[in-house]
C-alpha cells in the first residue's frame, strides 16, 4: 500500500524539552477532547553505563495526526510545528527532510498514517 502524502515531520529530539505545546496546539486546532491529541510526548529516561541516565522527550504523531492538511493547503505549517517552543519540529517533503536528517544527529523522521 502506498502513501498518499509525500510529507512528514522531522523531529529533533535532542532539543525537545517536553513542554507539550504540540499536544495542546493540536487539541485546539482539531477540537480533540482530552486526552486525545494528534501528537503526544514520551518521556524516556535512558540508562547509560556506570549507573548514569539520560532524559529524552520524544514527540510522536498519533493515529489522529493528519499533518494539519487544511493548514498546509493554505501554506501554513502544521500547528504543532508552528507553536513548538523549542523549534524542534519541521514539516516538509521526505526528500527535503531526509537531507536535513543527514546534517545532525538525534533526529527522527516521522511518516504519519
Amino acid at each position: 500500500m502506498s502513501k498518499s502524502s509525500k510529507n512528514g515531520l522531522l523531529i529533533d529530539y535532542e532539543y525537545c524539552t517536553g513542554c507539550f505545546a504540540c499536544t495542546v496546539a493540536c487539541c485546539q486546532e482539531h477540537g480533540w477532547e482530552a486526552p486525545l491529541s494528534g501528537i503526544k510526548i514520551m518521556e524516556i529516561v535512558q540508562d547509560l553505563p556506570k549507573g548514569k541516565a539520560y532524559l529524552t522527550f520524544l514527540p510522536f504523531p498519533t493515529e489522529l495526526c493528519v499533518l494539519c492538511s487544511k493548514r498546509t493547503r493554505e501554506g501554513l505549517d502544521p500547528t504543532c510545528v508552528k507553536h513548538c517552543m523549542a523549534n524542534c519540529l519541521t514539516y516538509g517533503s521526505f526528500q527535503e527532510l531526509a537531507k536535513k536528517l543527514e546534517q545532525k544527529p538525534r533526529m527522527v523522521l516521522w511518516s504519519p498514517r
Partner: peptide, 23 residues
C-alpha cells in the same frame, strides 16, 4: 483560537500549553 504572533520578537510565533488552552 489563540496563536503565537510570528512577528513578535519575544516568542516569535511560539506558544505554551496554557496559552494554547485558552479556548
Amino acid at each position: 483560537k489563540l496563536e503565537g504572533d510570528p512577528d513578535h520578537p519575544w516568542n516569535q510565533g511560539r506558544l505554551c500549553t496554557r496559552a494554547l488552552a485558552m479556548t
